[in-house]
């Protein structure tokens, strides 16, 4: 007797809340924006380090998200899908800006440009030593190449899982780990330098 081979049942992923038809109405889509605006805005801000530019880019990112909403397939969490769109958009912006402002040779040889357009000042309760130490650490983080900065921000600030970071950045898991290690070393060196300078005063 021939036994019919049973096909493995395809697992259907549950439909994510954010993809429900109700959110195709722009007025309701604002609920999705409200829920995810902080993580997207903060991520973009840390990529471009400019408040007003981060605001413009975040608006464009959510407009893209609205357009692409039907293509989200729930294999990864909605926040990871959103951050993937945000990352690509922010990286496109930084590359375009560098092409417009930096000579070609410099772009080809250097993977990052440290931006310093922060509009924030340290709280008054923080002493001058702490201000300079904070600035030193910020400079070290913002001087990291944008791809290395992205893994550090996703991993240690937002607490994103390694596989999700690989998906967001579109790179293999092994590359995520090596970028984390490289960024850790750069930060360690910068911190050692900061403490050395502080102890000399």
């Amino acid at each position: 007797m021939l036994l019919k081979k049973r096909r493995p049942k395809q697992q259907r992923l549950p439909e994510p809340v954010e993809q429900r038809p109700i959110f195709r109405d722009p007025r309701n889509f604002s609920l999705v924006v409200e829920k995810y605006q902080t993580i997207v805005f903060r991520y973009v801000f840390n990529m471009v380090h400019d408040y007003h530019q981060a605001e413009d880019l975040t608006q464009e990112i959510f407009a893209k998200v609205y357009r692409f909403l039907p293509s989200y397939n729930a294999k990864y969490p909605f926040s990871a899908w959103l951050l993937r769109i945000a990352h690509n958009h922010a990286v496109d912006y930084t590359r375009l800006r560098r092409l417009q402002t930096v000579p070609y040779e410099a772009v080809a040889n250097e993977d990052s440009v440290a931006e310093d357009h922060s509009v924030f000042v340290a709280p008054e309760s923080v002493g001058p030593d702490e201000v300079s130490q904070r600035k030193f650490i910020q400079d070290a983080i913002y001087a990291l190449p944008v791809d290395n900065r992205a893994v550090i921000v996703l991993r240690y600030l937002e607490g994103v899982k390694l596989e999700e970071i690989a998906y967001i950045l579109g790179i293999p898991l092994g590359t995520v780990k090596s970028r984390i290690n490289r960024a850790r070393l750069v930060l360690q060196r910068a911190l050692a330098q900061a403490f050395l300078e502080r102890s000399r005063r």
Binding site: S30, V33, E34, T58, F62
Partner: peptide
């Protein structure tokens, strides 16, 4: 921000 996004959309 949410209102600005909706206007863009």
């Amino acid at each position: 921000l949410p209102e600005s996004v909706i206007r863009t959309v």
